[in-house]
Amino acid sequence: MHAYIVRRLLYAVITFFGITVVTFALIHAVPGDPITFYIGTHGQNVSRPALEAIRHEYHLDDPLPKQYLYWLSGAVRLDFGRSTIDRRPVVERIGEKLPNTFELNFIAFLIAALIGLPAGLWSATRSGRPLERSSAVFFFLLYSLPAFWVALLLMQYFAVRHDLLPLFGMASDQAGAMSMPQRLLDHVRHLILPVVTLTYAQIAIFARFSKSALTEVIRQDFITTARAKGAGESAVLWRHAFRNALIPLVTLLGLVIPSLISGSVIVETIFQWDGIGRLYFDSILARDYPTVLGLTVATALVTLFASLLADILYAVADPRIRLGEGGR
């Protein structure tokens, strides 16, 4: 088991460096740089000497491999440089927005899992019946509704028309004068619409994914055996089937965790939820190399961690995986 984890870790480190090199090469291969973007967006009279100074400050006048080494030597010390947009440290800019994105996405993830997984299990036990069929159609419909449209409808109905929930932002202007519980309630009220927007499609994913995983297991011989030896239906489902359906679900978990920190441009923009998605989007548009690289590294680390976690969980859930490794 230890050898297995060590090997996985080693792969992760190599993959990580690969990701930084590729990202670095890609962002520089995209035409335009922070300077051209600056001139383009700021009209006719820009000072050339000042722009040259910026070019120099960000080492944009050095050859690419040298630029990469500059960046790497900072990155290993967790110094990702300063944004070309506002000159604030990249770590600070990311740190400011990460909790917001994580909070929103984590709550959405929990709710989606709490609704989606049971819904999936329910469908698996009733596979093929009319009610299950129509629920499948419903989930597909849900999955295909565009988020920006749903968000605007929610806003129109709940905020503008009926004034039940706040329109945008993370807290009310008067939150400062509230007591702690009031403040918490105020924040929860602000969370509702963005969470709903993020959740409805995820519920569909969870439900369909867990349904198909479980259906797959239920068809297998050992379930028939379990039924044949007289085990009750709930025992069959929970003790035998569900445990075996966990493996594909672990894969899903590995895919979902990175999205907890990468954020959503649409939801963050519409609800003015100051998060990572928007930061990523703006940085790419402005060719803010340090911020783009910093965000990529953060996302890459979480993705690698998630897949490492998934690998380990596989091994825990299915002894054949770790035995297979150990037996070599």
């Binding site: 820009v46 000072s47 040259e52 400050e57």
Partner: peptide, 11 residues
């Protein structure tokens, strides 16, 4: 130029 006041310096 080191202050990089690109918007104003030109004037």
């Amino acid at each position: 130029p080191e202050m990089e006041a690109a918007q104003i310096a030109d004037g």
